[in-house]
Design a protein around this nucleic acid. Sequence first.
DNA 1: AGGTCGGCCTGGCAGC
DNA 2: TGCTGCCAGGCCGACC
Length: 277
Amino acid sequence: MPELPEVETIRGQLAPFVEGTRINEIEIFDPRWAAPLEPQALVDAVRGRAVRRLARRGKYFDWQLEDELHLLMHLRMTGTLLLDPPQRPPYARVRVALDGHELYFSDPRRFGTGELVAGDAALARFFAARLGVEPFDERFDGALLRELARGRRGPIKSFLLDQRNIAGIGNIYADEALFRAHVHPLRPAGSLRPKHYALLAQAIREVLADGIDAQGASIDDFRHLDGARGSFQDRFLVHRREGEPCPVCGRPISKIVVGGRGTYLCRHCQPVPRRRS
DNA sequence: AGGTCGGCCTGGCAGC
DNA sequence: TGCTGCCAGGCCGACC
């Protein structure tokens, strides 16, 4: 699943090809991609616009076009961006023609989206309603995490996955960060000791940085701009390793369900939550 | 208002 | 072998 490190990897690869150039043409094959906007409305607004910067916020690509127009792309589950593929890729939903280059948004499950936001102020409101602090923001630390989680009784993992709290964490990096911080995913979010908020904040930053360093995790559909794979899947400590030995204590890794999401942990290294009822 | 759950979607795979 | 049906999950909206 594309999470912060995967989106950041693609952003870094794509930025040199698009910044300072122009969207000459955009073709939307799947009207769902732009919904609720009519595809033609998006095409008309974007066509011919200069691209000032390609930014990222949470898991969103933010194409900063001239006149404060923002084209936001989200890969959701299975979306990929492919630059200059030899032929039109399978599941192509959108084609963007740039100066001398062709970009495809491919997406088998069709969850991926593109939307327009007009004006920097509107963009700030859009993100404020959906996204919390960036994990690499200097304000993000154990104290902030503790404050955000205060009084919250839902599982800490669900809290980490809620983009309104912290932006960019998905199922992979939540499991890996909780393992590194020795925190059980079912612990009520507000119930950690101060020391563990600090450990967890640090683990989140480290695991995301490692993910970026490995150019993302290619477990399912995620691929680089040129179709190559990331390598972070080879560095998973617990995610998708049910039954394999814990890299710390050697006991088998468990799989449970938290908030409807498959969740991997070491029951020995991540202390058991207090029982409810 | 926090928390939970269903819907979106379809490739892949378990189970018969 | 071939078919059925269920699972995966980011995000949103409905509901309690």
